[in-house]
Simulated assay, not measured.
Amino acid sequence: MNNPYKTLIIDDEPPARLRLQKLLENFTETFQIIGFAEDGLDAKEKIATLEPDLIFLDIEMPELTGFEMLEQLTTIPIVIFCTAYDQYSLQAFETNSVDYLLKPVRLERLQQTVDKLKLFRTQDISQNVMQLLKELSTQKEEKPMTSLTVKKGEKLIFLKLDEIRLFKADERYVKVISKDDSYLIEDALSSLESKLPDNFLRVHRSTIINKNHVKDIQKYFNSRFIITLKNSKQSTVTSGRSYNEVIKSWIAS
């Protein structure tokens, strides 16, 4: 391709958009940034009006997730996911000729993306993405897990999900908080969410709680809630605004 790809950056976090923009400026022969979108609905409109050749797409966003947005498109551009999905899903992305970047995106990894774009056949993109969406939908139907393996020092501990109070994203790790202790695991919150049973609820972009261990809930300003959990530290979580309706539905049930 002689001309650079007309590129749209889709991410609900301004720092992530800015970081990616600065990285892409190192590859002006490959990418021409034509706009930004801050959620799934905004992305759908921008794709229709700007007609990008290529999009950098976050997955966990308010309004519509990246996958839900793609399913509503009639024409799908080249998709490069910027996400924190687990390794199993990343293999699916590769198998379907859709590239991925783990956050935080690094310059040397972006160079690999540029190299891979040279091998792309644009006419196959829509078919590959739709196949990916079908495979990920099948993954969601798997039975939820009942325990979690965590590491403490040199030991591996099998932690029952019933003992876990909350999961909280901590940079490239997830903090697992039980009644009296906490652990770090190398996993993605979005990946965990798809496997957890119904008594776990995502109340913030970075937090999943165990509803069975909630002590009390208080209303907070700006359509948010403060949730106190039953553990030795009486951990509190402030919910995200985009999870307001989910939490209200849970309270009402």
Rank of each mutant, 00 (worst) to 15 (best):
F225S: 01
L90S: 10
L201N: 07
E63R: 15
L64D: 01
Q91A: 03
A43W: 01
L136D: 00
K195H: 10
E63Y: 14
K233S: 08
T75H: 15
Q21G: 07
T83A: 02
L229C: 00
I78Q: 05
N2E: 15
E94W: 09
L119V: 09
T138Y: 12
N3L: 14
R109L: 13
T228E: 14
L110Y: 07
L73N: 00
Q123C: 11
Q21C: 12
T138S: 11
A92T: 12
I247N: 03
V203R: 02
Q131K: 09
M145H: 03
F167T: 06
K195Y: 08
L192N: 01
F67R: 09
Q91C: 02
K44S: 14
Q234C: 00
E163L: 03
S126D: 14
K44I: 13
A16V: 05
T30N: 10
V214N: 04
T28D: 13
L18I: 08
K151F: 00
G40V: 06
N3M: 12
Q112T: 12
D12K: 07
E51C: 12
L119W: 07
N210F: 00
V79C: 01
W250V: 05
E25M: 12
K215G: 00
T30Q: 10
T228Q: 15
K140W: 00
A188T: 07
G240P: 05
T75R: 15
A48Q: 14
F167M: 06
L184V: 04
S235M: 11
I247S: 04
L229F: 00
T228P: 12
A169R: 03
E71V: 10
D11N: 02
I209E: 02
G35W: 07
S137I: 12
I251W: 04
F120L: 15
E108G: 07
L161W: 02
L20S: 12
K134N: 14
L192K: 00
E186Y: 04
N244L: 07
P52V: 14
G66N: 03
L107Q: 02
I251P: 07
W250H: 04
S249E: 15
L159G: 02
F158G: 05
S235C: 12
S232V: 06
D39K: 10
P197G: 05
M69F: 02
E45I: 13
V98R: 05
L132T: 11
I55M: 10
L133M: 08
P15L: 11
D170V: 01
K175S: 03
S89M: 13
T95R: 11
Y85H: 15
P62Y: 08
V98E: 04
S97Y: 09
E29L: 12
S232F: 03
P104E: 06
F81H: 02
V150L: 06
V214S: 03
F167Y: 07
I177C: 10
R172C: 13
T149D: 03
G40F: 06
E60Y: 14
I59P: 08
K155M: 11
D187H: 06
I177L: 11
N212R: 02
T146Q: 14
S242G: 01
K219P: 06
I157C: 08
K168L: 02
F120T: 15
V114D: 12
S249Y: 07
S223H: 07
A16F: 04
E163A: 04
S147D: 04
L107S: 00
Q72Y: 05
T122K: 14
P15H: 05
C82F: 06
R19K: 10
K134V: 15
